Amino acid sequence: MKYRSVKLNENSFKNNYILLTEIMDFFPPELIGGSNKVESAEEATLYIGVCEPVKADIDGAKKFFRVRGPLTRRFFEAHELKPGDEVIFERVGHHEYHLYPRRNL
């Protein structure tokens, strides 16, 4: 499968992250690191549309990309996301992912 989706919850907005628990199998093991930067893994390139592409690995303990905070907040605000909305992770290349909201038209 070329893409997967994640449903945002209240904690996503409170702590500015996108929890990947349900789609961890979508990402190759070499992108999944330990619980701190000392144990980081290979980085993926994330195209999130609110800035230049970002590089980050996945915190394997917390199950989110190690890019959060202001950047994630900007992504949420730019797309007017709220709890219950879904974010699509689309594989667009080797270790490259485009993130965008699921739109129900």
Rank of each mutant, 00 (worst) to 15 (best):
S40N: 05
P70A: 12
K63Y: 08
F64H: 14
D25W: 02
E43Y: 02
E90W: 01
G93N: 10
V92N: 05
P53E: 09
G34S: 09
L46I: 10
H79G: 12
E30Y: 11
V6W: 00
V38K: 09
N11S: 03
E90Y: 07
R91E: 11
F75T: 01
K82A: 09
V38P: 02
L71K: 15
F75S: 00
F13P: 00
P28D: 02
K62N: 05
I48W: 11
A44L: 05
F27M: 02
E30G: 04
I88T: 03
N15H: 12
D85L: 06
A41K: 06
R4G: 07
E90H: 02
R91G: 10
Y47G: 12
H95D: 06
R102V: 04
R4M: 05
F27H: 03
D25A: 10
F26L: 13
D25L: 04
S35F: 04
L71P: 00
N9E: 10
R102I: 10
V6D: 02
F27R: 07
T72H: 14
K55N: 13
Y3P: 01
L99F: 08
S40W: 07
E52P: 03
S12V: 07
I18S: 14
L99N: 06
I88S: 01
T21Q: 08
T45I: 14
L46Y: 10
Y3L: 13
E77W: 01
F76H: 09
R66E: 05
A61R: 01
A41G: 01
F13R: 12
E80G: 15
G33R: 11
E22V: 13
L19R: 09
N11V: 05
C51D: 13
K62I: 04
H94D: 11
E22S: 09
M1Q: 01
R74E: 06
R66T: 09
E86S: 15
R91I: 06
V6L: 04
L20A: 13
I23R: 11
L20Q: 11
N9W: 11
K14R: 15
G49S: 03
F65Q: 01
Y3T: 06
E80V: 07
S5D: 12
A56S: 11
N11Q: 01
P29T: 03
E42L: 15
M24G: 03
H94K: 15
L20C: 14
P29C: 00
V54R: 14
G84K: 13
E77C: 14
Y17N: 14
P101D: 13
Y100T: 00
K82V: 15
N15Y: 08
S35A: 07
T45F: 05
H79F: 14
L46F: 00
E22H: 06
P70C: 03
G49N: 14
P83C: 01
E42S: 12
G60K: 09
P53D: 02
I88V: 08
A61L: 08
L81E: 00
R103D: 01
Y3N: 13
E30Q: 06
L20Y: 04
K62D: 03
R73D: 08
I32A: 12
